[in-house]
Design a protein around this nucleic acid. Sequence first.
DNA 1: TATTTGTTATAGTTATTATATAACAGATAG
DNA 2: CTATCTGTTATATAATAACTATAACAAATA
Lengths: 126, 126
Amino acid sequence: MLIFIEPESEKPIYQQIRDQIVEGIARGELLPGTGLPSIRQLAADFGINLHTVNKAYELLEREGFLQVRRKTGAVVQPTGKLAEDWEARLRTLLAEALAQGLPAEEILTRCQRVLSTLTDPGRTRQ
Amino acid sequence: MLIFIEPESEKPIYQQIRDQIVEGIARGELLPGTGLPSIRQLAADFGINLHTVNKAYELLEREGFLQVRRKTGAVVQPTGKLAEDWEARLRTLLAEALAQGLPAEEILTRCQRVLSTLTDPGRTRQ
DNA sequence: TATTTGTTATAGTTATTATATAACAGATAG
DNA sequence: CTATCTGTTATATAATAACTATAACAAATA
C-alpha cells in the first residue's frame, strides 16, 4: 500500500498518514496481522521526522486500529470499536452538504458510491 | 437557534460556532436571509473575544454559507456550492467505520438516520 | 548479546488559537 | 449631515499544536 504525503497541506502530516492507513484497512489492503514499517523506516521514506510518524501510530493505536509493541512494531489489529464521536462528526459533515442544498437522497447516493469504491476491490476511485 | 460553546473542547471555539451554524442551516432553522447576531454581540454572549467569532463568520463566508456586510452584519445565504474536498472528507470518515468492521449497510443506515434527524422537523436527535 | 523496535527526554521553530485594545471605514437610521 | 452600529484592520501577547533535531533508554528477539 502506497502512502503519499503533502508537506504543504493544511492537514497535518501525522493526520495524512493516519487517514491513509485507515483507508488501507477499510479497503482490505491492510489486513489484521499486517505489519507496518517501523517509524524510522517510514520517516526516512518520507524525509520527515520519526516523531511525526510516531504520532500517527500513537493516534491509530488510541483509536483502536493498531497494536504497537517494541521490536515487533505496529501491527494492524482493529478492535471493532468505533470512536464515540464518529456519529457527531458524520452529522457535521452531512449537515454541511444539506446546508448547501444537496438533497438527502443525493447525499445518500454519494455515501453509497464512496462506500462502494472502498469495498469493491478493483474499483477505481471516482 | 441556540449555540453552545465548550471552551475546554479540543475542537477550536470558532469551529464549534461554525459547525453549529451549518447545522442550523441544514435543519432549516436558519433560512436564507436570516440575520445572525453581530460578532460583538455573540462574543459578549459567550464571554469570548470578538475575533474568535469573526473567524467563524469569515470561515462561513469563505465556505459560501453567509454573506457578510458592514452595518447589515452576517446574513445566511448559501451559494449551493459544496466544498471541493467534501467527498474526500466523507471518504475518510466512512473508511474509519469500515476499518472498524462496521458493515457498509449498517453505515448507510446510520447516514440515513442522521440525515433524517437533520431534515425531519421536530424529530429529536438520537 | 547485539540489533532493531518503540519510548522518553530536551530543545528549538513555526503556525494556530485565543485574547486584549485600539483605531479605521462603510452603511444606515435619525 | 451625523451619530451609531457594523465588520475590518492592526498590534501585541500567551498558550498550544505541529514539526524538527538529537540523544538516550528499554524491551523484545534473532
